[in-house]
Simulated assay, not measured.
Amino acid sequence: MKQVEIISGGPELLDIVEPLWAKLNEYHKKRSTHFSHKFEQLTFEKRKQNLLKEACDVTINLIVDQTNNAYVGYCICTVNKEKQGEIDSLFIENEYRKYGLGAELINRSITWLENYQAQTIVIGVSEGNEHALDFYQKFGFYKRRYILERE
């Protein structure tokens, strides 16, 4: 197993996330059948502003490879004033995905949200990334509704 450490913090860690978020955004852009243009238009600065505007609190978990001091994954989790929790963004570099790090990030997020007494916890999955649904089901997340958007 790789030598990794998970660092936790708040909005002060957002700028560190940017290069990894850009990779996730590019992934969504390539996988999306109908909305790749939305990912092309989305910038990290816009995403960051939306997160900070809508959330009462933010937690960020960053995975650091200790052998090369590189950030290789993250999870952003928020809760709003209605106490709705959301796992907003999750990304792990390909070569680190086989070590259970995604599960660790999800479990930390759920624990944080439960400690915050979130009334609901949601995860949005982008069109084109449906294979992630099986992963999230392992943590008790299921499809509740479909929201369709006109191109």
Rank of each mutant, 00 (worst) to 15 (best):
residue 2 K to C: 03
residue 3 Q to E: 15
residue 4 V to M: 04
residue 5 E to P: 07
residue 6 I to G: 08
residue 7 I to P: 13
residue 7 I to Y: 10
residue 9 G to P: 12
residue 9 G to R: 06
residue 9 G to N: 03
residue 14 L to S: 11
residue 16 I to V: 05
residue 18 E to W: 02
residue 18 E to D: 11
residue 19 P to R: 15
residue 20 L to Q: 01
residue 23 K to W: 06
residue 23 K to I: 07
residue 23 K to S: 08
residue 27 Y to T: 08
residue 27 Y to D: 12
residue 28 H to L: 12
residue 29 K to M: 12
residue 30 K to I: 13
residue 31 R to S: 13
residue 31 R to V: 09
residue 32 S to G: 11
residue 33 T to F: 05
residue 33 T to Q: 11
residue 37 H to S: 10
residue 40 E to Q: 14
residue 40 E to T: 15
residue 40 E to N: 13
residue 41 Q to K: 14
residue 41 Q to S: 15
residue 43 T to A: 04
residue 44 F to A: 05
residue 45 E to T: 06
residue 45 E to D: 07
residue 49 Q to N: 09
residue 51 L to D: 09
residue 52 L to Q: 10
residue 53 K to V: 04
residue 55 A to W: 13
residue 57 D to I: 01
residue 58 V to W: 13
residue 58 V to E: 07
residue 59 T to L: 06
residue 59 T to N: 09
residue 59 T to C: 08
residue 60 I to A: 06
residue 62 L to E: 02
residue 63 I to N: 00
residue 64 V to W: 00
residue 66 Q to D: 07
residue 68 N to T: 13
residue 70 A to Q: 14
residue 70 A to R: 10
residue 72 V to H: 01
residue 72 V to C: 01
residue 72 V to L: 00
residue 75 C to Y: 08
residue 75 C to A: 15
residue 80 N to W: 05
residue 81 K to I: 07
residue 83 K to Q: 12
residue 83 K to D: 09
residue 86 E to K: 13
residue 87 I to E: 05
residue 87 I to H: 02
residue 89 S to Y: 11
residue 90 L to H: 10
residue 92 I to E: 03
residue 93 E to C: 12
residue 95 E to A: 12
residue 98 K to R: 15
residue 99 Y to N: 09
residue 100 G to M: 02
residue 100 G to Y: 00
residue 101 L to W: 01
residue 103 A to K: 01
residue 103 A to E: 06
residue 104 E to L: 11
residue 105 L to S: 14
residue 106 I to W: 02
residue 107 N to C: 06
residue 107 N to S: 08
residue 110 I to P: 01
residue 110 I to E: 11
residue 113 L to E: 02
residue 114 E to I: 11
residue 115 N to E: 12
residue 118 A to K: 06
residue 118 A to T: 06
residue 120 T to F: 03
residue 120 T to V: 10
residue 122 V to W: 07
residue 123 I to A: 11
residue 125 V to H: 07
residue 125 V to I: 14
residue 126 S to A: 14
residue 127 E to Q: 14
residue 129 N to L: 15
residue 134 D to L: 13
residue 137 Q to C: 04
residue 140 G to A: 03
residue 144 R to M: 02
residue 147 I to H: 12
residue 147 I to W: 05
